[in-house]
């Protein structure tokens, strides 16, 4: 196939109104048995913003993401996405409303190729029914080819051409994280949620990932929530940072402020310093 690094047309051509994402979380509380994973959390994510969430292990970051995407069921609070309360929706319904994610412990389909993994995420946009599909009518063929092009563009964009036909299970950890990003992008999410996408990556892989995320955010206004431990990455890429500890939000602000926030230094950065 062509070897050039193009723009995915799903990004290049999309009108800003279609990619509008505003998330408002109010008083979210999630309890596991006796453990308060989230305690009365308020959080705003603005359209086009790159927001990072940091905090020590067990602070509740993944729990927050899982609550937003419908995998966990918080006991209290509201999750308003583009004006609609999405709390209590099933994960596939949340995805349909325009929230796409990656998982902390990579949840790819190891027995499928890179291509097939990303193709799967086009499911929402395959507008056809069983009867014509079972006859593989020309309209279905056209639709399949259209999605195939989009998938290839995403593969080009993330510079994965050499491995497009490889089984995901055979790829190194850092590359799998990139495949998972590609799969999330194929969902054309209004809000992109990434749970520790840099974990286990080499320095070079991290640099490339930062470049992709920055480009997606700056050029195509991709609203993004990033959960990440690597403070260097977080400081360099985020517009705003939220700090969690023990299920509570303890600080919030732009990178310069967070760097010097006493609570943050005590609760989180202090551990490493």
């Amino acid at each position: 196939m062509r070897a050039f690094r193009g723009e995915p047309s799903v990004y290049g051509d999309a009108q800003p109104a279609k990619r509008q994402a505003e998330l408002k979380i109010e008083g979210l509380t999630l309890i596991f048995g006796g453990l308060m994973a989230l305690n009365n959390v308020d959080l705003d994510v603005r359209n086009g913003e790159f927001l990072s969430i940091v905090g020590p292990n067990g602070a509740g970051k993944t729990s927050l993401l899982n609550s937003i995407t419908g995998f966990y069921r918080p006991q209290k609070g509201r999750i308003i996405f583009n004006g609609e309360d999405i709390k209590g929706l099933r994960p596939h319904e949340v995805t349909k409303r325009g929230i796409g994610r990656t998982f902390q412990n990579i949840e790819l389909f190891p027995g499928m190729s890179v291509l097939a993994n990303i193709f799967l995420a086009r499911h929402l946009y395959c507008n056809y029914r069983l009867a014509p599909a079972s006859l593989f009518l020309p309209s279905i063929q056209k639709e399949e080819v259209r999605h195939r092009k989009i998938v290839e563009e995403i593969i080009d964009f993330l510079e994965m051409q050499p491995i497009r036909k490889r089984l995901v299970g055979s790829l190194p950890y850092g590359i799998r994280k990139r495949v998972e990003l590609g799969r999330a992008l194929a969902l054309e999410p209004k809000l992109l949620i990434l749970d520790e996408p840099f974990a286990g990556m080499t320095l070079e892989e991290k640099e490339e990932m930062v470049r992709f995320l920055r480009e997606i955010n700056r050029r195509w206004m991709q609203t993004t929530i990033l959960v990440e431990h690597d403070m260097a990455v977080v400081m360099s890429i985020s517009e705003r940072i939220v700090v969690f500890n023990f299920g509570e939000k303890i600080a919030e602000g732009p990178p310069e402020v967070i760097k010097n926030h006493p609570e943050v230094i005590k609760a989180y950065l202090g551990e490493e310093a």
Binding site: T69, F71, R90, P91, H92, E93, T95, K96, R101, F103, E107, L108, F109, P110, G111, M112, L120, A121, H123, L124, R183, L187
Partner: peptide, 15 residues
């Protein structure tokens, strides 16, 4: 997808 990882399948918008 459902066979290989039903949680991920649901995350990809498959009911």
């Amino acid at each position: 997808a459902i066979r290989d990882n039903d949680q991920a399948a649901e995350g990809m918008g498959i009911p």
